[in-house]
Simulated assay, not measured.
Amino acid sequence: MDIVGNGFLARNLRPLADRHPGTVALAAGVSWASGTSDADFAREAALLKEAAEGCLATGRRLLFFSTAATGMYGRAVGPGREDAPITPCTPYGAHKLALEEQLRASGADHLILRLGHLVGPDQPDHQLLPSLVRQLRGGAVRIHRGAARDLIDVRDVITVIDRLLALDLRAETVNVASGVAVPVEDIVDHLGQALGLTARREYQEAGGQHTISIDKLRALVPEVGGMGFGPGYYRRILDDFTGAARV
């Protein structure tokens, strides 16, 4: 597999570099759901166009990473499903959905994965958990009231990607998440307890909560049944994350 990019996800994909030779993984582009610009979006659209054209010319499959986060499914009625109509509720969600449509129209073989919130060592500072830890250490945490996030261990994500690619899926879209929406307040509680930190909480009225359907993922990759997904799954991955953060 050829991996385009050198960020958090791209680094975690490297163990698969010698597998799936007919696939190009586009692990580059916009990974920040807030604070992005039209220029950032345009650069990612151009990168996707170039990658899709290259795959079309060489007969390879393009693996594209979209989002299953609030920006995509925040207005969904019930769990967010891959086959349901979507009305994105943030510019980032609208951008990712537009890129999915761009890829489908390109004619290139492809697999689109809508990811939950990945958790693992050496995440970029702007992502959810590093940001919360930094705020806890600074003495004040901003919480969107009522917000919840689906957390998934990046190691489990890589296992799932390996299994999905082995199925030789084409023109499919699959949610890759734990299927559990964890209140951000519970995430902050666990981080604070694990790190021995307390902080003032500043609430904002901009929260979003949704559940991501993983019915399709479970049908395609039965191994996810052994990954521990469920209400307590997030505690294990937060313990792993805070253990690395203390080092």
Results as ranks from 00 to 15, higher is better:
86 I>C: 12
86 I>T: 12
87 T>A: 14
87 T>P: 00
89 C>F: 12
89 C>H: 10
89 C>W: 09
89 C>T: 14
89 C>L: 10
89 C>V: 15
90 T>G: 04
90 T>N: 08
90 T>M: 06
90 T>W: 10
91 P>S: 05
91 P>M: 07
92 Y>R: 06
92 Y>K: 05
93 G>E: 03
94 A>K: 09
94 A>V: 04
94 A>Q: 12
94 A>M: 02
95 H>S: 10
96 K>C: 03
96 K>D: 05
96 K>T: 08
96 K>V: 03
96 K>G: 01
97 L>K: 11
97 L>S: 04
99 L>A: 00
99 L>K: 00
100 E>T: 00
100 E>P: 00
101 E>D: 13
101 E>P: 00
101 E>Q: 15
101 E>W: 08
101 E>G: 07
101 E>H: 12
102 Q>K: 11
102 Q>M: 12
102 Q>R: 13
104 R>L: 08
104 R>S: 10
104 R>W: 07
105 A>W: 02
105 A>P: 01
105 A>I: 09
107 G>C: 04
107 G>D: 03
107 G>R: 05
107 G>Y: 02
107 G>Q: 04
108 A>G: 08
108 A>I: 03
108 A>D: 02
109 D>Y: 13
109 D>W: 13
110 H>D: 07
111 L>A: 10
112 I>V: 15
113 L>E: 03
113 L>A: 01
114 R>I: 00
114 R>S: 00
114 R>G: 00
114 R>K: 08
115 L>F: 10
115 L>Y: 09
116 G>W: 04
116 G>E: 02
116 G>P: 01
117 H>F: 12
117 H>R: 13
117 H>M: 12
118 L>I: 08
119 V>M: 07
119 V>W: 08
119 V>K: 02
119 V>S: 03
119 V>R: 07
120 G>M: 04
120 G>W: 06
121 P>K: 13
121 P>A: 15
122 D>L: 12
122 D>Y: 11
122 D>T: 06
123 Q>S: 09
125 D>M: 12
127 Q>Y: 13
128 L>Q: 03
128 L>T: 06
128 L>N: 05
128 L>V: 13
129 L>Y: 04
130 P>C: 05
130 P>D: 11
131 S>A: 15
131 S>E: 13
131 S>Q: 14
132 L>S: 05
132 L>Q: 10
132 L>P: 00
134 R>I: 01
134 R>L: 08
136 L>P: 06
136 L>T: 11
136 L>E: 12
137 R>F: 02
137 R>E: 11
137 R>K: 14
137 R>D: 02
137 R>S: 09
137 R>M: 10
137 R>H: 03
138 G>S: 13
138 G>Y: 08
138 G>P: 00
139 G>P: 01
139 G>C: 06
139 G>L: 04
139 G>S: 05
140 A>V: 15
140 A>R: 15
140 A>D: 07
140 A>L: 14
141 V>P: 01
142 R>V: 14
142 R>S: 13
142 R>K: 14
143 I>F: 08
143 I>V: 15
144 H>C: 14
144 H>M: 14
145 R>V: 11
145 R>K: 14
145 R>M: 09
145 R>N: 06
146 G>A: 05
146 G>Y: 05
146 G>L: 04
146 G>M: 04
146 G>V: 06
147 A>C: 03
148 A>F: 07
148 A>V: 05
149 R>M: 06
